[in-house]
Write a protein that binds this DNA or RNA. Structure first.
Lengths: 315, 315
DNA sequence: TTGTAAGCGTTATCAA
DNA sequence: TTGATAACGCTTACAA
């Protein structure tokens, strides 16, 4: 017991004991067993995170933010990637609960019924990230996908573009894409433009995909004069395709992107985009989670982070 | 005990018991406590990974590979990012050992003496990734940075370039960069070219950095006719700078990169580069670690993964 | 300030 | 096939 005190709260122990313990620790190479500690105290300093994929710079910025904050607060991060499968997410959540994580961060707001049941039954605090859902499991940290898409579309309309194309990832199983489509439609209406379903496309992720969408929308009988790529690296693919074909941007077609990849600013011409708080989402998620865990807050928390339009030469 | 058996090895228990346990589990929402299990058995299914940064697509591909394999083998992944600090790495390793991880994966081969001592004292199996070090802590999985740099430099020499510039990240605290420099020098010698220190540059990471290096090496009194960018996104920055300045690639200067970012293939012109086994490093690391943990192998393991030159229009 | 006793929820071991 | 007992290495609660 004295050793335990000397290690966890040295102030509670005499200088003599403190020194002797330190010496002994050094000598035998003692490494505390947190498993035993956690079992006894029923507290852990491990946070579980589930993301669809790790190898995606959009997620990895958020993960970095989480990791930074946890490190400062002496907590560990467990990561599972679900590969965009809800069943895999559920399995990861179960594994995390079995490890008695102190909190969970989930990348999206859609989960299996069993996952929801387990989480609620466990009482573990949770932060969801995907979008500002009206029915959070517990806490939410995100920006508004709808507002962001609306803002960018309006931006294009104000610049005088009348036939604004919109390309997103498939919306069927993606709340983000749905929100962005909603924002686009709201802006089109608000700007007094006619809605043309022929200007709206859903594409799989990837550079090639963006190039294809570009060609389809500009090769259109009534071509788009601007295209807003609301996802992944689609805009980058389109910009590179314009360079390859010698299409002048923004004269032939203006291009706007959704996410602030470094590279967009270095393309020729640099591409207008949104600055989204990716890193900040991670940081704030970890912060509100730790606040809750350490009893500094209670009840529902919803953090609406700000985005920003970066206007560049492509529009 | 019967419940424990029914849960961990259902075959060892009668069908009746199995059913009753399953029913009870369902009814009370029982979630096994792995902390207790691990304390008792002194086995865990958690692997600790230390990387310098998570928000870097080079690392994240490897992390994805690790994560994929661990998931298939029902293990969990704990990640710590060290921010390129050896002290932070040591702290992360200590935290992992306190959690009694079953194995460690370290991104580099340089560690503090205390970190090395702790690891060896713990007896936990370790995989190191950075480069094929002659003195591994335990197991190593990597490709040869030296061979890869040498191969690319020779490739350029064979194409007829005589003044081949070489740009890498600062080598002082980076074994990878040192190995790559060595490979470059070996190739220059092998090709019978004179070594010119004015053609060798060390730059910090980043797009802007690559652009600057380009200008310095081509603005040179005796300009480079080809540049091999052996790190980060330097080559991308240089390619984009050429586009901005209207410099013809490869006529004015040929460009080669080290890492197979998707984007390099989509630039104008597409950039010659190396295909490095990033994902594979992650996969194999996890595999050799699990082999060791599960007793399928013993002794030192060194896995030398293959790389490949992707020849494109930039050279 | 230090020490004693019990208990956290499992698994290992041995017995029935 | 099932069950009883001890032990894993800590923390909590209380006593000295």
């Amino acid at each position: 017991m004295t050793v335990s005190r000397a290690l966890t709260d040295p102030a509670k122990v005499s200088p003599d004991v403190r020194a002797r313990v330190a010496e002994a620790v050094r000598k035998v190479g003692y490494v505390a067993n947190k498993l035993a500690g956690s079992l006894s105290s029923s507290r852990t300093k491990v946070i579980g995170l589930v993301v669809p994929s790790i190898d995606n710079s959009l997620f990895s910025a958020t993960i970095q933010g989480i990791s930074d904050v946890l490190r400062r607060h002496d907590h560990q991060l467990m990561i599972a990637s679900s590969g965009y499968s809800l069943e895999a997410e559920e399995a990861a959540i179960r594994a995390f609960l079995e490890q008695r994580v102190a909190g969970l961060i989930l990348h999206d707001t859609t989960h299996t019924p069993d996952a929801i049941r387990m989480i609620q039954h466990s009482g573990v605090p949770v932060v969801e990230n995907g979008t500002l859902t009206p029915e959070p499991l517990d806490m939410v940290v995100s920006y508004s996908n709808e507002d962001a898409a609306q803002a960018m579309t309006l931006h294009l309309a104000r610049l005088g573009y009348r036939r604004i194309g919109f390309v997103s990832l498939p919306a069927a199983d993606n709340a983000r894409s749905r929100d962005r489509q909603r924002g686009y439609r709201a802006a089109v209406e608000q700007a007094g433009l006619p809605f043309d379903a022929g200007l709206v496309l859903e594409m799989p992720p990837g550079l090639a995909s963006g190039a294809e969408a570009l060609v389809r929308l500009v090769g259109h009988d009534a071509p788009a004069d601007a295209i807003f790529f609301a996802g992944d690296v689609l805009a980058m693919g389109a910009s590179l395709e314009c360079a390859r074909r010698g299409w002048a941007v923004p004269q032939k077609v203006a291009l706007a992107a959704f996410d602030n990849f470094d590279l967009l600013g270095h393309l020729v011409p640099p591409v207008t985009t949104l600055r989204l708080p990716r890193l900040e989402i991670g940081r704030r998620s970890a912060e509100v989670l730790l606040d809750r865990i350490e009893g500094r807050s209670a009840g529902v928390v919803a953090v609406d982070l700000r985005f920003e339009i970066i206007h560049r030469a492509s529009t």
